[in-house]
Each structure stands twice: as structure tokens, then as C-alpha cells.
Simulated assay, not measured.
Amino acid sequence: MSKKSTWLARHSSDSSAVRRIVCFPHAGGSASFFRPWVKHLPPTVELLAVQYPGRENRYAEPLVGTVAECAAESAEALLAEPARETVLFGHSMGAAIAYETMRLLEVAGAAHFTRLCVSGRRISEFPDPADAVPRTDTQILSDMAELGGTQAEVLDEPDLREMLLPIIRNDYLLIDRYRPPRDAVPIGADVLALIGDRDPQVDERQVKAWASVTTGAFEWRVFSGGHFYLTDHARRVVELATAPSRNSASPGKVR
């Protein structure tokens, strides 16, 4: 089976589509998290989401161990798609994978990837990755309760909890061990950084630091809400992410 059919879930596709948004899920998340975004997009913009191994239609596949592996597989799948203007959107862990994927796409010379949207994720100020160890069930459940979102509610069901905990533990370890390369060449794509004003993992100062990864235009927005603010602000998030490149709107807070 081709990378295209396993790594990319196609939530919408229309013969009239001229642009594309590709979404990268959070730790423990799956491609279906972004399916509701279809209703906020015109037929001219198709919606794809990256499907990591070990979940939904890829449940039987081994989990991926590094951000680099996820990025390499995602980039390969995306390069096999028809070339059209494309935005990458990643939330939380997905922001790191989307960033590394964009770096690979630009190295490959794919100029039609024009914007990177990073949500709920910082780019610096991490603890020593050598200290990263698999989190216990108690730690995972505590972290998920703090972050909120529908996933925390799902973990209240014993059968679902038993199925999801290994996936979330793997994803947490994957992202705990990831560090952005210090000598990375800045990308040329525009960057849009988004957070919720009550996110316990990243603040306004940290979200502005994403400006350092690009030579293109940079914007940031702060929404009302916690780590999963985007579920309540989906329409506005989609509008910002898919706006024409080098949007001249000023950065700031969105209520």
C-alpha cells in the first residue's frame, strides 16, 4: 500500500480544489480530529490530515519512535500529491512534526508549501531530552486532565483507556525527546503561531519565538481558551490558516 493511502486521510477533495490544508494531530490524536473542519472550507480548498501509525485505520501498525521518522514519512506522502498551494497545520505535538516536515519539503525544492501554522506548541525552552522517560499511567491521566479536550473524557472509559494509553505514552516520549535543531536553516514559508490564553504549556512570549524559524512573514494570535482552544474557535482558526499568503492583518488576541 502506498504512503499516500496510509499517511494521509483525505477529508475533502473536489475537482475544483486549487489549494490544500494538511493537518497534523496532537499526541494521542488521529486524523479524524480535523474532519469537522470540512464545513468551514470552500470546495476550492481540500482538507487532508496526517494519520500516524497505531490509530484508526492504522491501528495494527507499529508506533513511530521519533519526530524525524514521522516528518520523513509525511513529507514523502505529500510530495506524491499533485502540486498545489498547501498550508501545513500542526497542533501541539503535531506542530513539531509539521515544522520538521516543512523543513524537509523545502530541502526537496517543493515551493508550493507556502505556510506553516503551529498551534499550542513552543519552539524553545525545553528540559534536557536525556531526562525523558516513559510517563506512568498516573502521569498521563493527570496531564490529559490538565490539558482538557475530548480526549480526557474518553480516558474515563476503561476499555478505551487501555487502548489509548500506550499510544499516548509513546507520543509523549516521542515529543519529550524531540528538540528543534539549533543550526536549522530558517524556512522560507510564512509562519502563523496560535495559542489559547489559558494553555498551561505555552504562553504569549513563547509563541512569539516561532518568528525565529522563518525568513518569511510571521504572525501570531492568542485565542480565549486552554490547550484545545481550537475546538471552540475552529471557523476562525481555519480562516486564518487558509488566508492568502503574507496576510497583512496585524497580530494580536482573538476573543
Rank of each mutant, 00 (worst) to 15 (best):
T101K: 00
R122S: 06
A71F: 11
T101F: 01
A77C: 08
E69I: 12
M93Y: 03
A77T: 09
G120A: 01
S74A: 11
E61H: 08
S124C: 12
E73K: 07
A60T: 13
S32E: 11
G54W: 03
E61T: 03
V87L: 08
A110S: 15
S32R: 04
P42M: 12
Y52R: 00
Y52V: 03
P62S: 07
P42N: 14
V107K: 10
Q51P: 12
K39W: 11
V87H: 07
K39Y: 11
F33Q: 00
Y59H: 15
S124R: 13
R84H: 09
E73C: 15
T114D: 06
H40E: 09
V45H: 01
A111Q: 14
R84A: 11
S124G: 13
R121Y: 05
R55S: 10
T114H: 05
A110G: 13
F89G: 02
A31G: 03
E73N: 13
S119N: 04
L116S: 04
A71M: 15
V38S: 08
T101G: 06
S32Y: 01
R122M: 10
A71Q: 10
W37L: 01
Y52N: 02
G65D: 09
H40Q: 14
S32T: 07
V64F: 00
C70V: 09
A49W: 05
G54M: 05
A31E: 01
T101D: 01
A95C: 15
S74C: 12
V118D: 09
E73D: 15
A83I: 12
L105Q: 00
L78W: 01
A68C: 15
T44L: 11
L116W: 09
V67C: 04
S74L: 07
G54S: 08
L116Q: 03
L104V: 05
C117E: 11
A80W: 12
A77F: 02
V67N: 05
M93S: 09
E61R: 02
L41P: 02
V67L: 08
G54L: 05
W37K: 00
S74H: 05
C117Q: 07
Y59D: 15
C117R: 10
R35H: 12
S74R: 07
P53T: 10
A60R: 13
E46N: 06
F113Y: 14
A95R: 11
L88V: 07
P43E: 14
A60N: 10
F33S: 00
S119R: 08
L105M: 08
A75E: 02
R55P: 01
E100I: 02
E100P: 02
E76S: 08
F126W: 07
W37R: 00
C70A: 08
R55F: 10
F126I: 12
I123Q: 01
R115A: 04
V107I: 06
R58D: 08
A83G: 14
E76P: 09
V118C: 11
V118R: 05
E61M: 08
E73W: 06
E56A: 12
V87I: 13
S119E: 08
G109K: 07
E106N: 06
A77E: 07
F34V: 04
T86H: 03
P53R: 03
V64A: 13
T66R: 12
V118S: 10
G109L: 04
T101Q: 01
